[in-house]
Design a protein around this nucleic acid. Structure first.
Lengths: 226, 226
DNA sequence: AATTTTTTAGACAGCGTTGTCTAATTCGTC
DNA sequence: GACGAATTAGACAACGCTGTCTAAAAAATT
């Protein structure tokens, strides 16, 4: 009962927070692997190295746990995307090389990493069942990302580096081209190496610049067909 | 016992085949809506207008039923894609208009229709769990489709209609561009109208031709930026 | 060292699902 | 109309999962 005066408000346990994280990680894994209905609490408990009761203590409910998982996932994923977006080449010296590097970062850090894969999978699997959960993702995720990316392209166009008439369309197409080669491989769960990602980015940017590049910015790259 | 001589080999019942189809349709629906683990036989039976026992009579097992569903789905989807692929404009008079029309057909008949959506969803949800099932789809589906589409583009290039150096890449990028605008909307289950599909196809083909079009084939379309 | 809180293992009821079985019924054929 | 095959409704056991509970163990705080 006596409240000591030094460090009075320290949380009851330290392991508490660590276990919460560990539970969330394991739950993310299992929910994504097995789907909501296929996942069971014992699996999650075993994978988290925690007793089943502890999970109920922390999250109260299978559904609440699922919601917590999706929230954490979307927040992390959005943060990662915007962090990568901040590395967009606003004043490119070599636009092709810098766009390729940017595309590689985008693929590596946002789309091919586990958060991206997990989020896509949960979205496809349970999106219909929890529309309100994923509507938030959609607004804060793709909505803002496309807008932000479109603004970057518009600025590049204004600076004379690109010839873009509809930046929104260009942004969506850029994302689509980035993923063109990788999507099917990822769905099947293949692990794709760095060079594969780089190749995909190079192809995407090359086509993107053939479509939207300024004639003056292109010509150093040979474009003859053999 | 007495085998009458006329029409001896007629199947025992006619409703048999109809019910099999109806079961498969309902099972496809339910498996895609609820996932494998979340689907239950009673749901499927109710949706098929059939008793639970009949399902077991026809397919024996929940897992066998699932396999049958995926097989039917992949076969139908592949057939549909190749049928649409046969309408590719091999000798285009107006390449942009004909590619747009082709893209619209591809989207409407193969990607946005229920088979396409269902297949993608099942693939994402259960692909890891049944790799052998979906490996077949991957080989006969995207593998052959990309090759076939690439061959078409190569022929267009050879005929002087396109400037394509790597037809495989071009084919994948064409598919990716086609889907750029629609994918997110579809995942969330929105119903997209004809004009939306048409708009997406127009944007995709325009960019594709800006990247791969022959200079001589392009210029009639004004490309000035305001 | 004592105390309080958290965690654990295990048992437990309640519920839903799968797959089987049986008896009644429907359907198409003869 | 009578026969045989398929279908149906319902009951049923076996099983797995959720969520709760209890008593023991572990961890941290005092």
């Amino acid at each position: 009962m006596a409240l000591s005066d030094i460090a009075p408000d320290i949380q009851p346990a330290r392991s508490h927070a660590a276990k919460r994280v560990s539970i969330l990680e394991a739950a993310t894994d299992v929910f994504c692997r097995e789907g909501y209905a296929g996942a069971n609490i014992d699996m999650i408990a075993a994978e988290a190295g925690v007793s089943r009761q502890t999970i109920y203590n922390h999250h109260g409910d299978k559904e609440k746990l699922f919601v917590a998982v999706v929230r954490a996932l979307t927040e992390r994923a959005n943060a990662g995307i915007f962090a990568t977006l901040a590395t967009f080449p606003d004043h490119p010296a070599d636009i092709e090389a810098e766009l390729v590097a940017f595309a590689v970062r985008l693929n590596r850090n946002c789309i091919c990493n586990s958060d991206g894969k997990y989020l896509r999978k949960l979205l496809e699997a349970e999106g219909q069942r929890y529309p309100e959960l994923f509507a938030g993702w959609r607004q804060d995720g793709p909505g803002k990302i496309w807008a932000a990316l479109a603004a970057r392209f518009a600025r590049l166009a204004h600076g004379g580096h690109l010839d873009v008439d509809d930046p929104d369309v260009a942004a969506r197409q850029f994302m689509a081209l980035i993923n063109a080669d990788l999507h099917v491989s990822m769905v099947l769960g293949e692990q794709l190496g760095e060079e594969r990602v780089r190749e995909a980015a190079k192809n995407a940017v090359r086509t993107f610049l053939r479509a939207y590049g300024r004639p003056s910015a292109l010509p150093r790259q040979s474009r003859t067909v053999n």
